[in-house]
Write a protein that binds this DNA or RNA. Structure first.
Lengths: 210, 210, 210, 210
DNA sequence: GATGAATGAGCTTTCATTCAT
DNA sequence: GATGAATGAAAGCTCATTCAT
């Protein structure tokens, strides 16, 4: 795990916002530098290129996620459904606290970009997919979960639903007359709402009713 | 409804692909012109600017959607649940047949861009939201649908799930060993899968079990 | 043969001077544009890149040289020694009238550059070498020229001597108290001097005294 | 004569190669530092600037040359023609053993650069010119050399011919099917060839046949 | 003395756009 | 109406150099 000094972190944080707001191509290194309060040349000095800055942002954010997931799946004390609920809440939490980064991810996944990130991303997605599949299998073996679960679709519903709400929270607020709610309040509010909603879906899909 | 001549349509179609693949900022007017087989200056001549070309692409694609939705909701012959199922299939179909455009939409929604599109988008989303709310209300009045349905979350699940699968279909194929399936086959395959999956969710959430 | 318009020629001529004076790397496209009295972007518009501008300068200058040489060697009416003398005068003339270009050539040959020019240059040098070898052989067959002539060394003496004088003409003037001579006068003066000097060398080396 | 420590010498040697390969402007202080295995800032610390590093390289290489020449010319025991032959061999040897430096010299002489080097170079060339003129005069006084020798042209032939072969040795090898010869072998081979060739020229030009 | 960090100036190139015809 | 020519602005990046330690 690379160690970043204060200035580097400041640059990465500024970059994250710009990449999220304007896209990789739309973001300007000059503006990132300005936002971070550092000299333009500093960015290339520290990261080498715009591309590599992007990679650093990516690594920085995804560093511990898979490990975290792994330890959760392998936890012997939690019941499968509890694990699933934890999973849901973890994802919701991540997306809510790392909204900028989430937008970057969605964007990069969507594009036919040649960025190295995509490769890293694929690898991570596969690992995560397998971990969650293992989790589902645990529940199936205990007879708690239904057979024939399409893990990909299940995860698409989790990530898609939460991601969509987060991405379009502005519309959500407007449509539901919550314009006056502060960002912090809304985050708390929507986290609860999403948690209940997605968990209900997961239970409906997973649980064996027999 | 603006009428576009053949050349203009060719430009818009080329633009759609480029905007989808590389983002608004990443797309180059030069390359769009080349793809469309028209003179570079032609684009500004016909559309005024890159920005306005984007708007044209947007209007072109969304022209009839709300009308279509409206007629469906007001249809007196279909049962509410049948309408919901039609709604689901319509969305799936749209996203699958207009993948490029979908990617553009997701991207634009996510960004803090100043594009005029965003305004149009907000307006359209509101209209659609109200239409679907009306549909839900129809079901509730008939006692078929549960009370306390969060329409926003429900739609987020529809759009989010389908959108996510479409956006990341490459991963889906790889994860589920479908690499050898042709695009056309896969489209057919995933349409069915998504249809069943999302309808199951909608039923679980909407249907009144009492 | 590419046709260049007036502006393109102006750019190439300005480029030639800058490349000669400051080297390829040292020359700035900005300054070339300024010297040529054209917009900076114009250069990339016409030539694509600094590198390709260099190639254009090269092709422009070398376009007819090999052809000229060829027709001279194949001339049935001139005696071999007369051809050699013409060759010497032609080289001297070329170096004197195209001093900037000559400096560029010397420089590029010397450097371990990756420029495409080097390949073109090698090819041209080989062709020229073979033509001159043919010329020498003509003289040998007639019994006028000595056997065992090293064509490479002979040409090195021609090109090296003339090139060195041209490259260091400033020193030559100073050393021989010719500072007050105008450039035009000096060119005339040194052309004659070089012609006599190099022809004497060629005769001494080539002519069969038996 | 400045004394340089081991690190400084390492820097100058690395610089020489880079300046020769890429030109003064094309060479990068960063890369020189890397090649020399020293810290980037070290170079400015020791030499003040890139420019002054160049001057140091120059002084370093030319330090003893004039002295050597002087002692040779003043040598009472050698005959003038023997001196001339020694001169030729000395030049050939210098150019062959200091190829990088030679390339730098040629380049700098050619350019309209403002480097202080040029002044040093002019001064050195003048001194050398006078020494060689003295040598020629010795031969003329003894009736061995022809009158009316243009020392500048004579030296141009020596330096030009040898320099051209050295600069374009790659072509020489290819043209004469010597690609498989090692650098060391070729150096030996071409030294002999050049020696014979140039001495023959010098004799033809200098020697009084009456 | 020695150096990692930092920077202003400059580089080539590409961009969306405009204009003259 | 249609387009080749042209351009100002801005992009990412590298440079030689300096400075604080």
């Amino acid at each position: 795990m690379a160690e970043y000094n204060e200035k580097q972190v400041r640059i990465m944080e500024a970059a994250e916002v710009h990449f999220a707001d304007r896209g990789f191509e739309g973001a300007s290194v000059r503006e990132i530098a300005e936002s971070a309060g550092v000299n333009l040349a500093m960015i290339n000095y520290y990261f080498g290129s715009k591309e590599k800055l992007m990679e650093a942002v990516f690594s920085h954010r995804t560093a511990h996620f898979t490990l975290q997931l792994e330890s959760m799946v392998n936890n012997k004390e939690l019941e499968p459904m509890a694990k699933v609920e934890t999973l849901v809440d973890t994802y919701i939490d991540r997306l809510l606290t790392q909204q900028c980064f989430h937008r970057i991810l969605v964007r990069e996944q969507m594009m036919r970009s040649n960025h190295t990130i995509v490769d890293q991303l694929v690898k991570m997605k596969k690992t995560n997919h397998n971990l969650i599949k293992a989790l589902i299998t645990q529940g199936q073996k205990k007879g708690l979960f239904r057979k024939n679960i399409d893990v990909s679709l299940l995860m698409a519903t989790l990530v898609g639903t939460v991601g969509h709400v987060v991405s379009t929270q502005h519309y959500y607020k407007e449509t539901n007359d919550l314009q006056d709610m502060s960002d912090e309040e809304f985050k708390k509010y929507i986290r609860k709402k999403l948690s209940v909603h997605v968990k209900a879906i997961f239970k409906a899909i997973l649980s064996n009713e027999d």
